[in-house]
Nucleic acid binder design. Structure first.
Lengths: 192, 192
DNA sequence: CGATTTAGGGTACGGTTCGTACCGTACCCT
DNA sequence: AGGGTACGGTACGAACCGTACCCTAAATCG
């Protein structure tokens, strides 16, 4: 009968999250179906609903699994190149399916502030940490003013890029836009 | 029987759009249901699907119907107050229930690039024009550098506020956030 | 003024998906 | 060995989308 042993606990949970992440990558959040996730994970909806209360929660949890690859902040010795490298990594990089997924999640989470908070915190494209890192180095080199080291200021370029994704509905933005964001906004904003 | 004459054409279309806009304002895009719109408009889904191919198209059309009021840029004689006034007008949405609807649509219209394009073109909280207007006046007063008069730079505050709406899922942002956006980002960016 | 065309009203239906409930069974622990 | 827990399978109700069908009011035209 080729019966494998019945999975339990963490092993099964991991399989579910992996299946959900695959579905997200293939069909995006609108295509994330509980039944298909269950089938792909070789289990049933029961095991899913015992862990997450609804589809949105599963989606957010699975997104965690996908977007695990943190951006490692570049260190070119030049703030402009660092910022461009970060934007390009988000834009072209492997996280471009992640952008689509994130967009779908933002639409689907609805009125659940807790899930939105999770998305916003850890979320999206590495969060504020890499930006604060490159800013710290720039301040040390005298290329940025110390007052710029706040999350709001540091992530302005990220927010502008995200805005391009959201309003234009694209998964990739023209490189000239990245240059424009850096040269017209980011450097004048944080520069000394 | 108090039978009113059967509505047709533009009259019925107007009633449907009005009902859809009301539903959008109350429950947001996820709560926009064809059957409820039909019931609220005193008709049935038939009349709706004869005019719009699907739910998303109806949502965008309903937004169009109520989004006429443009923001008139304030003129306080002070760039900081002008910018705050614009942000507050968008935030409170008192100028238009349309703003709230737009937020719901932006978060709710998922993977339909055509509709997203329509929203982005015609809409978006007044667009860059009022921001360019207050910047022009500020430049004339010596409160802003001339190079800041580009759409990308001028609308940074708007984009940051929109980002708050989208990532936090709120319909209203705390006023302190507006002040932070203006003082930490906008003024340092455009100031001379 | 009567006949024809058009468009709205009412309703039912298929398909899909969410989320829940029930029941039998394999696994873990003591 | 025995019990509690968690998994597998399945069926079900509810909501919603989009479509189909028939009937009727209204506009249009001969």
């Amino acid at each position: 009968m080729a019966e494998k042993t019945r999975r339990r606990g963490a092993e099964l949970e991991d399989a579910i999250l992996r299946a959900a992440a695959d579905e997200l990558a293939e069909a995006g959040y609108p295509g994330l179906t509980m039944e298909r996730v269950a089938q792909r994970a070789g289990t049933n909806k029961n095991a899913i609903y015992r862990r997450w209360p609804n589809r949105a929660a599963l989606g957010v949890a699975a997104y965690r699994h996908v977007a695990e690859d943190r951006l490692t902040p570049p260190d070119t010795g030049n703030l402009r190149d660092d910022a461009l490298a970060l934007l390009r990594a988000i834009n072209c990089g492997q996280s471009s399916p992640a952008a689509r997924i994130l967009r779908g999640l933002l639409t689907g989470v609805g009125d659940e502030p807790e899930l939105r908070q999770q998305l916003h915190d850890q979320a999206a494209e590495g969060g504020p940490k890499p930006w604060l890192t490159i800013l710290d180095r720039a301040v040390a080199r005298g290329q940025a003013r110390p007052g710029a080291r706040t999350p709001r200021v540091a992530t302005v370029a990220l927010v502008l890029l995200r805005n391009e994704f959201l309003t234009r509905g694209l998964t990739t933005v023209d490189d000239a836009v990245l240059v424009e964001i850096v040269d017209e906004v980011y450097l004048p904003l944080v520069g000394a």
